[in-house]
Design a protein around this nucleic acid. Structure first.
Lengths: 216, 216
DNA sequence: ATTAAACTAAGGGTATTCCCTTGTTCCAAA
DNA sequence: TTTGGAACAAGGGAATACCCTTAGTTTAAT
């Protein structure tokens, strides 16, 4: 069986050396090319055919996100494994949407690294569960979100109004469904807009969706 | 070493039997109690001390979400492993936030099941990577969405209007940003509402979000 | 029993949205 | 080349939403 051809993209030479060393200790991996930033990677990628690309995110000149986007336009089937740090959580979602095959933490051990490369080269995904959890939960423990969910006390009636609003009902339609005056509905909406700091129905609905106050 | 004590909560007797059978084939698992819905589970849980609870979501009388919430109020350290189907993706996030220790697909094999139970009993999480990915990408395979994107031809200008609307801009604000009259913005919105079959801005925004026409 | 908060409702003024109609421009099919 | 169909633009008028104030009732907590 052939070795897995790896292309390393990272701006830290020492890190690249470390990976090469780790891979050389195991059978079946071969680093066929390196680049120290996204731009260099884009220049080189047309001329090589790696099985897996190890891609750093935070790099000078061109970052991993841009490089990934450009590379996948040229070679949509490129298997890109992102090397991430806890710090760049903000980029994960975008990278997943671009179509990277996985990401692992930079402080992972050699076993995780080789395992991830193997899986990705086989066509599987390899996403650190820890990271996926962070992405999901982070959406909610964000300073605004957490603070809001405690401070933001929405009354039962307000919630029902909000719910119906999020089903695109007009004030009058909401009033009819709750058997109250449309003026009362307006009152509740005004309260909701005050509490959420929004100015109109659309903003209120968007707030409700983003903060998962209602179920779409 | 003691067996892992399992409490099964599922409304389908056959499914419970299947799990019991699968666990009996392996060493180290013992089903100590069962319940056929959330309410029954809540009644029984004060009197038993399972290592892991296998919890279905969709059940009569009281669903898995409510049951989990109530149970964790009483016993916050309860290790709950959710048995989920592809269908109930909407509940995953809420369940994670409640503090369940993992979830696996109901059509998983016996190996996955026992592995998950073992991990959870040890205090680890066990979340199906596939499911986490689905949550993140929200790729609930909406047949409407796919079909619509072909029929629904939204012009460049309309798209920009829609985009700004989905950022809660008023017609006038959109007009200012696109250097056109607010009347023109209204015109584009009217077209959009025609094309999407919606009646007002809120409905239009909801349509755009549900059909992923825009990025939130 | 008193207070505070939520729920209800109304009036009235202003702003915005919605709907219908009228144009112009541009592009592609006949 | 004309012609039909979109995309684009904008006007007037009606409907709706928004904002402010006031105020009675209900409910929960002190």
């Amino acid at each position: 069986m052939n070795s897995i051809a790896v292309f390393i993209v990272d701006d830290h030479k020492l890190f690249r050396e470390g990976i090469k060393f780790a891979l050389s200790k195991k059978e079946g991996f071969e680093v066929i090319e390196e680049a120290s930033n996204g731009s260099e990677f884009i220049e080189k990628i047309p001329f090589v055919d790696p099985d897996v690309v190890l891609m750093d995110i935070d790099m000078p000149i061109m970052n991993g996100f841009e490089a990934t986007k450009l590379a996948l336009q040229q070679k949509p089937h490129l298997k890109i494994l992102v090397l991430s740090m806890h710090a760049d959580q903000g980029h994960y979602l975008k990278m997943i949407e671009l179509g990277v095959k996985g990401f692992i933490l930079k402080d992972s051990g050699a076993d995780v690294l080789t395992n991830a490369i193997s899986e990705v080269s086989k066509g599987n995904n390899f996403f650190s569960q820890e990271l996926l959890m962070n992405i999901i939960l982070k959406k909610h423990d964000n300073p605004t979100g957490a603070a809001l969910s405690e401070k933001l006390k929405i009354s039962t009636r307000e919630y029902h109004v909000l719910e119906l609003l999020c089903q695109a009902n007009t004030n009058q339609q909401i009033a009819d469904k709750l058997f109250i005056s449309s003026k009362t509905v307006e009152g509740h909406k005004t309260q909701l807009m005050l509490k959420t700091g929004t100015q109109n129905s659309v903003a209120l609905v968007l707030f409700a969706i983003k903060n998962q106050l209602i179920n779409l």
